[in-house]
Protein backbone atom coordinates (compact mmCIF):
# COMPACT_ATOMS: atom_id res chain seq x y z
CA UNK A 1 0.00 0.00 0.00
CA UNK A 2 1.35 3.38 -0.95
CA UNK A 3 1.03 6.19 1.59
CA UNK A 4 -1.64 7.78 -0.60
CA UNK A 5 -3.75 4.62 -0.62
CA UNK A 6 -3.32 4.34 3.12
CA UNK A 7 -4.63 7.86 3.60
CA UNK A 8 -7.51 7.12 1.25
CA UNK A 9 -8.41 4.01 3.27
CA UNK A 10 -8.14 6.03 6.49
CA UNK A 11 -10.60 8.64 5.22
CA UNK A 12 -13.00 5.89 4.11
CA UNK A 13 -12.75 4.10 7.47
CA UNK A 14 -13.32 7.33 9.41
CA UNK A 15 -16.38 8.15 7.30
CA UNK A 16 -17.85 4.66 7.63
CA UNK A 17 -17.23 4.49 11.38
CA UNK A 18 -18.68 7.91 12.16
CA UNK A 19 -21.54 7.43 9.72
CA UNK A 20 -22.35 4.02 11.16
CA UNK A 21 -22.13 5.23 14.77
CA UNK A 22 -24.39 8.22 14.14
CA UNK A 23 -26.77 6.04 12.13
CA UNK A 24 -27.12 3.48 14.93
CA UNK A 25 -27.45 6.19 17.56
CA UNK A 26 -30.26 7.86 15.64
CA UNK A 27 -31.94 4.51 15.07
CA UNK A 28 -31.76 3.73 18.80
CA UNK A 29 -33.19 7.10 19.76
CA UNK A 30 -35.75 7.07 16.94
CA UNK A 31 -38.64 7.73 19.32
CA UNK A 32 -36.88 10.55 21.13
CA UNK A 33 -36.14 12.30 17.87
CA UNK A 34 -39.82 12.27 16.92
CA UNK A 35 -41.05 15.81 17.15
CA UNK A 36 -44.68 14.88 17.80
CA UNK A 37 -46.93 11.91 18.56
CA UNK A 38 -49.88 10.90 16.41
CA UNK A 39 -53.38 10.47 17.88
CA UNK A 40 -52.88 6.70 17.43
CA UNK A 41 -49.73 6.86 19.59
CA UNK A 42 -51.74 8.69 22.24
CA UNK A 43 -54.56 6.10 22.12
CA UNK A 44 -52.01 3.30 22.42
CA UNK A 45 -50.55 4.96 25.51
CA UNK A 46 -47.18 5.63 23.88
CA UNK A 47 -47.23 9.30 24.82
CA UNK A 48 -45.69 10.28 28.17
CA UNK A 49 -48.23 10.68 30.96
CA UNK A 50 -48.05 13.69 33.25
CA UNK A 51 -45.44 15.39 31.08
CA UNK A 52 -45.92 17.89 28.26
CA UNK A 53 -45.62 16.47 24.74
CA UNK A 54 -46.81 17.29 21.23
CA UNK A 55 -49.66 15.79 19.25
CA UNK A 56 -49.83 16.24 15.50
CA UNK A 57 -52.79 15.57 13.24
CA UNK A 58 -55.44 16.92 10.96
CA UNK A 59 -58.19 19.16 12.38
CA UNK A 60 -61.42 17.22 11.73
CA UNK A 61 -63.94 19.04 9.54
CA UNK A 62 -66.72 20.58 11.59
CA UNK A 63 -65.09 19.84 14.93
CA UNK A 64 -63.92 23.37 15.76
CA UNK A 65 -65.99 25.00 18.50
CA UNK A 66 -65.45 28.13 20.50
CA UNK A 67 -67.56 28.48 23.65
CA UNK A 68 -69.51 31.75 23.69
CA UNK A 69 -67.98 34.41 25.90
CA UNK A 70 -64.76 32.45 26.24
CA UNK A 71 -61.41 32.29 24.46
CA UNK A 72 -61.29 28.53 24.87
CA UNK A 73 -61.41 26.64 21.59
CA UNK A 74 -61.97 22.94 21.16
CA UNK A 75 -61.24 20.83 18.15
CA UNK A 76 -60.55 17.20 17.25
CA UNK A 77 -57.19 16.09 15.86
CA UNK A 78 -57.21 12.94 13.76
CA UNK A 79 -54.80 10.71 11.90
CA UNK A 80 -57.77 8.95 10.28
CA UNK A 81 -57.64 5.98 12.63
CA UNK A 82 -57.75 7.66 16.05
CA UNK A 83 -58.83 11.03 17.44
CA UNK A 84 -57.71 13.35 20.20
CA UNK A 85 -59.85 16.23 21.45
CA UNK A 86 -57.80 19.35 22.08
CA UNK A 87 -58.66 22.34 24.23
CA UNK A 88 -56.73 25.55 23.67
CA UNK A 89 -57.03 29.09 24.96
CA UNK A 90 -55.21 31.72 22.94
CA UNK A 91 -54.42 33.04 19.51
CA UNK A 92 -54.26 30.50 16.68
CA UNK A 93 -51.77 30.83 13.79
CA UNK A 94 -52.88 32.21 10.41
CA UNK A 95 -52.85 28.82 8.73
CA UNK A 96 -55.08 27.21 11.37
CA UNK A 97 -58.31 25.93 9.86
CA UNK A 98 -60.31 22.74 9.64
CA UNK A 99 -58.66 20.19 7.39
CA UNK A 100 -55.24 21.67 8.19
CA UNK A 101 -52.39 19.80 9.83
CA UNK A 102 -51.57 21.24 13.24
CA UNK A 103 -49.27 20.40 16.13
CA UNK A 104 -50.40 21.03 19.70
CA UNK A 105 -48.10 21.05 22.72
CA UNK A 106 -49.58 20.34 26.13
CA UNK A 107 -50.67 17.66 28.59
CA UNK A 108 -53.34 15.02 28.69
CA UNK A 109 -56.10 15.63 31.21
CA UNK A 110 -58.04 12.38 31.14
CA UNK A 111 -59.09 12.10 27.54
CA UNK A 112 -58.80 15.80 26.85
CA UNK A 113 -55.53 17.24 25.57
CA UNK A 114 -55.01 20.67 27.11
CA UNK A 115 -52.70 22.60 24.80
CA UNK A 116 -50.46 25.50 25.75
CA UNK A 117 -49.38 26.14 22.19
CA UNK A 118 -50.84 25.31 18.78
CA UNK A 119 -48.69 25.45 15.64
CA UNK A 120 -49.87 25.06 12.06
CA UNK A 121 -48.06 22.66 9.75
CA UNK A 122 -48.21 23.32 6.05
CA UNK A 123 -47.55 20.84 3.28
CA UNK A 124 -44.86 20.85 0.61
CA UNK A 125 -47.28 21.82 -2.16
CA UNK A 126 -47.23 25.30 -3.61
CA UNK A 127 -49.85 26.38 -6.13
CA UNK A 128 -52.05 29.33 -7.08
CA UNK A 129 -55.51 29.40 -5.40
CA UNK A 130 -57.41 28.65 -8.62
CA UNK A 131 -55.34 25.52 -9.24
CA UNK A 132 -56.01 24.41 -5.67
CA UNK A 133 -59.76 24.90 -6.18
CA UNK A 134 -59.64 22.89 -9.38
CA UNK A 135 -57.79 20.06 -7.69
CA UNK A 136 -60.24 20.07 -4.81
CA UNK A 137 -63.23 19.77 -7.16
CA UNK A 138 -61.58 17.03 -9.12
CA UNK A 139 -60.87 14.92 -6.06
CA UNK A 140 -64.20 15.72 -4.37
CA UNK A 141 -62.29 15.84 -1.14
CA UNK A 142 -63.09 18.52 1.37
CA UNK A 143 -59.89 18.05 3.32
CA UNK A 144 -57.04 19.91 1.64
CA UNK A 145 -54.82 18.19 -0.87
CA UNK A 146 -54.26 14.45 -0.80
CA UNK A 147 -50.51 14.60 -0.16
CA UNK A 148 -50.93 16.78 2.88
CA UNK A 149 -52.91 14.06 4.60
CA UNK A 150 -50.28 11.41 3.91
CA UNK A 151 -47.58 13.74 5.15
CA UNK A 152 -49.35 13.96 8.48
CA UNK A 153 -50.30 10.36 8.92
CA UNK A 154 -47.20 8.49 7.86
CA UNK A 155 -44.19 9.17 10.01
CA UNK A 156 -41.86 7.27 7.71
CA UNK A 157 -38.81 5.46 8.96
Amino acid sequence: MTPRQRRMALVAVVLLTVGGAVGFALKAFQDNVQYFFSPSDVSAGKAPAGRAFRVGGMVTQGSFKRATGSMEARFVLTDFSNDVTVSYTGVLPDLFREGQGVIARGKLDGNLFVAEEVLAKHDENYMPPDVADMLKKKHEKPTGTPTSTTAMTQPAG
Binding site: Q34, Y35, S38, I103, L119, K121, A151, A156, G157
Partner: peptide
Protein backbone atom coordinates in the same frame (compact mmCIF):
# COMPACT_ATOMS: atom_id res chain seq x y z
CA UNK B 1 -38.16 15.68 7.31
CA UNK B 2 -38.56 12.23 5.74
CA UNK B 3 -37.16 10.10 8.55
CA UNK B 4 -38.96 11.74 11.47
CA UNK B 5 -42.11 13.59 12.36
CA UNK B 6 -41.34 17.25 12.03
CA UNK B 7 -42.93 20.64 11.92
CA UNK B 8 -41.06 21.40 8.73
CA UNK B 9 -42.80 20.05 5.62
CA UNK B 10 -41.30 17.41 3.35
CA UNK B 11 -39.19 18.05 0.25
CA UNK B 12 -40.86 19.83 -2.68
Amino acid sequence: VVWWNSLHQGPS
